[in-house]
């Protein structure tokens, strides 16, 4: 341990007494935490695989099926069925599953507890931890939309603002649900199981694999109320550009309600420290 360094500090401290120090801002704190999380994400092979490979693989597998069955009569092109689903996979595998594991790991290693002893606010801790996964997920969405449209010769989204609204609401919903789900798992292994219900429900019932229009009316309108259904509907409508204002407003409202429920659930159930 260096005496010299401390002495220099001591002198500086004496001189600096009373003068107001520049305090950190929320943006700087978020970036600092986000940078550390990005480093951690880069060192987590499982998470990277879930994030970067699985959505693409699922999309390819789905394309084979769609092309093989000649998309059973929904009037949707392959691209219009496939691309929104791919963005859904990014939300579920890239962000939701990943972040659930990350929150569990940070809590169990007492990182969240330690972060709360500093100047970071609670919301900044949750957001900063999610920052790299969300930014990467959004970048993936942009790439998939641009490249996907090119490869499948379907051009660009007809109503990009709706697609963007859908993806952003989706990101808030899945990050918040990841935080809530993390309260149910004590290990990162258990986190892989805890995410299954929402994943299955969304894959099956939110129009990712089977468009809801293809289902009986009653069932379809019930499934439209699932957490990620309005998100998928907005993305699809943003892609095809074909929907009435009333329908769009309904999807937006349901999506925002789910975002609100998820954020409330975080405040109510999120655990900052391990159960002992």
């Amino acid at each position: 341990m260096s005496t010299a360094v401390l002495d220099a500090d001591a002198i500086e401290r004496e001189e600096g007494r009373g003068e107001v120090r520049a305090e950190t801002g929320a943006g700087a704190r978020l970036l600092a935490l986000g940078r550390a999380e990005l480093t951690l994400l880069g060192r987590n092979k499982t998470a990277l695989y879930m994030m970067l490979v699985i959505p693409v693989m699922l999309a390819i597998a789905m394309k084979q099926t769609l092309v093989g069955t000649n998309s059973p009569g929904m009037g949707l092109s392959v691209a219009a069925a496939l691309l929104p689903a791919t963005l859904g996979y990014v939300l579920l595998f890239g962000i939701y599953s990943n972040m659930t594991g990350a929150y569990v790991a940070r809590r169990e290693e007492l990182v969240l507890k330690r972060l709360r002893t500093g100047e970071l606010r609670d919301l900044e801790i949750l957001a900063g931890t999610a920052l790299p996964a969300v930014v990467l997920g959004l970048a993936q969405c942009v790439l998939l939309v641009l490249l996907g449209g090119m490869v499948l010769k379907d051009g660009l989204p007809k109503a990009p603002h709706l697609l963007i609204a859908g993806v952003l609401i989706g990101a808030v919903v899945v990050v918040a649900f990841a935080a809530v789900s993390s309260a149910l798992a004590r290990t990162t292994e258990a986190a892989q199981l805890v995410v299954l219900p929402l994943m299955m429900l969304s894959l099956g019932g939110s129009g990712m694999v089977v468009p809801l229009d293809a289902l009986p009316d009653l069932l379809g309108s019930l499934l439209e109320l699932l957490p990620l259904s309005p998100v998928m509907a907005l993305i699809r409508v943003g892609w095809t550009g074909g929907a009435g204002t009333g329908e769009i407003l309904k999807h937006l409202a349901v999506g925002l309600v789910w975002a609100g429920i998820a954020v409330f659930a975080v405040q109510r159930w999120f655990r900052w420290e391990p159960r002992r």
Partner: peptide, 9 residues
Amino acid sequence: RMWAGCTSG
């Protein structure tokens, strides 16, 4: 480095 980004001065 992370902590420094979250700490005043």
